[in-house]
């Protein structure tokens, strides 16, 4: 199984009556991590929801592996900023949900869910309800749940945005660790450093379109200051959010 590739052809996305993105054309290669950065209201979350199939594109079209996106699919899992866990299900049963959807036999679900939870560092907390987990732990459960469905593309909407700096850094490390090249990742963030740290490329949205598309060279141990400056410039300093 390989990652999903996306092709966005001249898409226009509206939020209510307002067009937030106009005539956007962009390719996402199979297996790449594309970070999407931009100020609030630039349409990055809307774009992600369109990729997930949660909203339809007014004009233009989105192709996933050459097939127009229509509706949601287990191939394109969306990971939310917070509060997307089902609060009546324990961590284990949240992670088991995509397994049930995929038709994994009931007898195997708990063990598989526990294995995923162990991978995100939550061994021992499988029986906890979301309300008894910290924000960082909940996001780990969500990451495990998202990956347990074996999606070919993971769409992340500011997944670490609500976390404190240290937890955030841990989660970024964790994502780099559990991510495999068989999954395409589109990561929406307003954190430039996160975009440069995790992304193979950084798409900067602004002014209703693609302001810049920055390739991040590998190995990315040493992120160049000029790259950061370029992304920041594309973002436009005055509109930059502070976290």
């Amino acid at each position: 199984m390989t990652g999903l590739s996306f092709r966005l052809e001249d898409i226009t996305l509206r939020y209510g009556a307002r067009a937030v993105l106009r005539d956007l054309t962009l390719d996402v290669a199979a297996g790449e991590i594309l970070a999407v950065a931009g100020p609030s209201g630039c349409g990055k979350s809307t774009l992600l929801r369109a990729l997930a199939g949660l909203l339809t594109v007014g004009e233009g079209r989105i192709l996933a592996d050459g097939v127009p996106v229509r509706g949601t699919s287990a191939d394109r899992a969306l990971m939310f900023q917070d509060d997307a866990l089902l609060p009546w299900r324990t961590a284990r049963r949240n992670v088991a949900l995509p397994l049930a959807i995929r038709g994994v036999p009931r007898a195997q679900r708990a063990a598989r869910a526990d294995a995923w939870l162990a991978r995100v560092g939550l061994a021992g907390l499988e029986g906890r309800l979301p309300r008894d987990l910290s924000g960082g732990q909940r996001q780990r459960v969500q990451l495990a749940r998202t990956l347990a469905g074996r999606p070919r593309a993971v769409l992340m909407d500011e997944p670490f945005g609500a976390l404190d700096a240290q937890t955030r850094a841990e989660m970024q490390r964790l994502l780099a660790e559990v991510w495999s090249a068989s999954t395409t990742v589109v990561l929406v963030t307003h954190d430039v450093d996160e975009a440069l740290l995790l992304g193979d490329r950084v798409a900067v949205l602004g002014g209703g379109g693609l302001a810049d598309l920055v390739e991040v060279p590998r190995p990315r141990t040493n992120v160049d200051a000029p790259l950061r400056a370029r992304v920041l410039a594309a973002l436009g300093a005055p509109t930059l959010e502070t976290t």
């Binding site: 997930a52 199939g53 949660l54 949601t72 699919s73 287990a74 191939d75 394109r76 899992a77 969306l78 939310f80 509060d83 997307a84 866990l85 089902l86 949900l97 995509p98 959807i101 995929r102 749940r145 998202t146 469905g149 999606p151 769409l155």
Partner: peptide, 20 residues
């Protein structure tokens, strides 16, 4: 978000009804 999460995990109408 609950419903959308389940739908993007591949859940259909019945699953959303039952699980969300």
């Amino acid at each position: 978000a609950w419903e959308e999460a389940v739908r993007t995990l591949g859940g259909g109408r019945v699953r959303v009804l039952r699980s969300v």
